[in-house]
Simulated assay, not measured.
Amino acid sequence: MKSAPVRCVAVDDEPLALDIITAYVARLPAITLIQTFDDALAASEFLRTTEIDLLFVDINMPDISGIDLVRSLAIKPLIIFTTAYKNFAYEGFQLEAVDYLLKPIAFEPFVKAVNKAIDFLELKNKPKSEPEESLYVHSEYRLLKINLRDIEYIESLEDYIKIHVTGARPILTLLSMKKVLEKLPDAKFKRIHRSFIVPMAQVTAIQNRKAILLSGKELPISDSYTGFIQDWHQTIL
């Protein structure tokens, strides 16, 4: 059955920016624009009583900023910030925006941002019985999709984690080890140390209390997680 279009609202004090977003949405059948606002306060009142899926919102507006508008919402839709400034506010990262678009907004990055939002909504609405094949994290002010099969290992860096992926640079995200484990399938990913999580499929051998990965990387197995050794042996029997 075909999914209903993603319901979105655009908020910007610049009429031209609203015209561009309206024109771009009209070219994408997967989303529908139900309302636009050039007044952030009016938009705030509307969003308190109307459920939407996605909000395009300018950061710099005269009454209240887009960031303050998002913070004020009890129920937050997915957010795509728009801005005329290259240095995107750190607060947007804390609010876990799907993406941000630099003005003047071009069609290609607009489509990419919308597709991220659609992917995230599909993941969110997927029946829990279906296995997860991807991990979504916020990094560099964007929502990133990581294929589980590409994860080599995950490393803790105090308040952050570093996700090492095959064939690409590591991805840094503000997330705890506990939280990322909750997002991963338990049978496929195991914690072996306070600083490391590994995919079972990446482990080729265990030697001298170290997990040896396909890449040749060796990671320590701490006393608290020696149960991993038995779990791994069961996967190769």
Rank of each mutant, 00 (worst) to 15 (best):
residue 210 K to C: 11
residue 97 A to I: 00
residue 115 N to C: 09
residue 195 S to D: 10
residue 134 S to R: 15
residue 221 I to N: 03
residue 208 N to C: 03
residue 136 Y to N: 06
residue 95 L to C: 11
residue 11 V to W: 09
residue 71 R to K: 15
residue 188 K to G: 12
residue 43 A to G: 12
residue 62 P to L: 10
residue 206 I to G: 02
residue 174 L to K: 02
residue 153 Y to C: 10
residue 32 T to V: 13
residue 68 D to Y: 08
residue 237 L to T: 11
residue 215 S to T: 15
residue 55 L to S: 03
residue 233 H to Q: 15
residue 176 S to I: 04
residue 207 Q to C: 08
residue 176 S to P: 04
residue 120 F to P: 05
residue 89 A to N: 11
residue 139 S to C: 10
residue 210 K to W: 05
residue 82 T to Q: 08
residue 234 Q to F: 12
residue 20 I to N: 02
residue 170 P to M: 07
residue 72 S to A: 15
residue 141 Y to F: 14
residue 136 Y to E: 06
residue 13 D to Y: 09
residue 21 I to C: 00
residue 68 D to C: 11
residue 43 A to L: 03
residue 31 I to A: 08
residue 17 A to C: 13
residue 228 F to C: 11
residue 55 L to N: 07
residue 84 A to F: 00
residue 72 S to E: 15
residue 20 I to D: 08
residue 181 L to Y: 03
residue 23 A to Y: 10
residue 210 K to I: 00
residue 130 E to R: 12
residue 52 I to G: 08
residue 123 L to S: 13
residue 215 S to P: 01
residue 160 Y to P: 01
residue 53 D to W: 02
residue 184 L to M: 09
residue 81 F to E: 10
residue 150 D to F: 06
residue 205 A to T: 10
residue 78 L to F: 10
residue 4 A to P: 02
residue 114 V to E: 10
residue 222 S to K: 00
residue 78 L to I: 04
residue 166 T to C: 12
residue 228 F to M: 08
residue 31 I to L: 03
residue 85 Y to P: 05
residue 227 G to A: 12
residue 147 N to R: 05
residue 163 I to Q: 01
residue 218 E to D: 09
residue 226 T to M: 14
residue 131 P to T: 05
residue 124 K to C: 05
residue 106 A to T: 03
residue 97 A to S: 08
residue 18 L to Y: 04
residue 135 L to F: 05
residue 224 S to Q: 11
residue 237 L to I: 14
residue 206 I to W: 04
residue 5 P to V: 04
residue 196 F to L: 09
residue 57 V to I: 15
residue 199 P to I: 12
residue 182 E to R: 09
residue 164 H to W: 11
residue 205 A to G: 05
residue 27 R to I: 06
residue 68 D to T: 15
residue 159 D to R: 00
residue 208 N to R: 14
residue 219 L to S: 05
residue 135 L to W: 08
residue 196 F to T: 04
residue 83 T to E: 02
